[in-house]
Design a protein around this nucleic acid. Sequence first.
DNA 1: ATTTACGGGATTGGGG
DNA 2: ACCCCAATCCCGTAAA
Length: 245
Amino acid sequence: MLVVVISKSEEDVQSSSQEHQSDLEVILEFLEEHYRQESQGKAPWSTRDFHISGEDRSHELNLHGTEQDKPQEELLPASKAQRDMGSPAKANRCDHGTTCSVNHSPLHHSSPKLNTLKGGLSPNPTTEECAKSLCSVTPAEKGKKLRLFHFLFEMLEDPDMGHCVSWVPASVGVFRFSAKHKERVAELWGQRKGNRMPMTYQKMSRALRNYGRSGEIIKVKKKLTYRFSAATLSALQTQALSVKK
DNA sequence: ATTTACGGGATTGGGG
DNA sequence: ACCCCAATCCCGTAAA
């Protein structure tokens, strides 16, 4: 396992671009966490899952997270004005209500679907907390609220939101907010929750940090960057797949 | 020196 | 009434 990582590192050193360097840092973060969990005898994912499929996927992906932000920076010029207006979501892109017509990823309307993780939960039993929390969250069925990490996953799977949040290439489950549009994600989150007061990135990121305790989402030591735990991610992905079918 | 992002204790609110 | 816990508020600190 270490061998794989080392070879990856060398590759990054060779390419020596700053972006690759940053990704490497993220990967190292991931490794540390992995090691931590393993040393507790509770590795929630297999070495294979992490290093092979993860790395392989990274080579397939041709995206560059930081680049993604730039070309579309001005896509949402109205977002601030809309925030001031009070009920912006409906005017802007779909707030996942019943009347949206934007082209969506298959996951887009997943608030009801993602909320039924129970059915699609992967049989990965090692992280009991995660399994428990994911299983217990079936808001649509039970009338509970949508959870923040479901919402974020939904955003991440939505190509239309790529300029606000996006997966970090070459690192499994790691995602990054756009510095310019992070507030937009928070806004949408607040709207989805039906909050009276506008949600902000600051508040949302605090909620994100709270996930650190349960291990559902872990902060990466890099600006605006977080990582889904493997268990959470696989549960969400499994759910996504079952929704697709 | 200033701005932005992070960290975390305290509080709130909904569900069981 | 009480407990639990995710979400939110708020303020201090770190980092760019």
